[in-house]
Amino acid sequence: MADIALITGGGNGIGRAVALKFATEGIAVVVADWEADAAEKTCAEIRINGADAEAVRVDVRRAGEVKDAVARVLDRRGTIDILANIAGGSFYRKRLEELSWAEWKEVLDINLKGTFLFCRETAPAMIRQKRGRIINTASNYGVTGSALRTPYSAAKAGVIGFSKSLALELASDGVLVNVVAPGPTDTPRVMEGWDPEARQKRAAEIPLGRNGTPEDIAEAFYFLSSPASAQITGQTLHVNGGWVMP
């Protein structure tokens, strides 16, 4: 039977690319996104090729919604073998003094609490079958910090600390927990916010000479879900063209 993967933020950008990659590799995918249409669109792309995909609408910040979404998937599919927490974003570019408490919490909740909630709801199924892969998403900014992105830097650094702890907790149950930290990546959302000249300038600063693509990042997610990474846990894999070497 095919492995079942649950991918949050699967409607767009990196999440969408991961869903498509997993499907290509014969993994059945559940695409979770707070934009139901986007999740459906990703699934439709996958189903064109005859692969198995279903969409789930969920706001990762809401504990009740996450619990229900995971329960429904387990009910229908029996288990979840791979969890890829990709829903996230930096949302604001503001100085510390200009950020409200609500904005701080929004960024922390989407990037960090959502990751926790999905791990908490999914881990018992993986523990039961003594097998599972959890792949969370950080950012180079979690390691280097970024001016005007204090909450995002905090949240992404937090994802790394959280994932190391979870890796320790689940190791004896055969569940591996790792992190992918993308660098500058040409997702539709990032492309919107950049003028082409600034993007070219950034690309020139990257040792490999170009921004990453969602497909580059998806390869790292697939690697960390595959037997090839069976001895890797608690680690952060930076995929950034050599831009940051922590």
């Binding site: 922390l108 926790f116 280097t144 910090g145 970024s146 001016a147 600390g161 190391k164």
Partner: peptide
């Protein structure tokens, strides 16, 4: 990281990420 301390590790690693961003600002 620490067993039974994922929330604590998230918060403390978060501080390190926050401090780096703040230092730049």
């Amino acid at each position: 990281g620490a067993v039974a301390g994922a929330h604590y590790a998230a918060s403390k690693a978060g501080i390190v990420g926050f401090i780096k961003a703040l230092a730049r600002e």
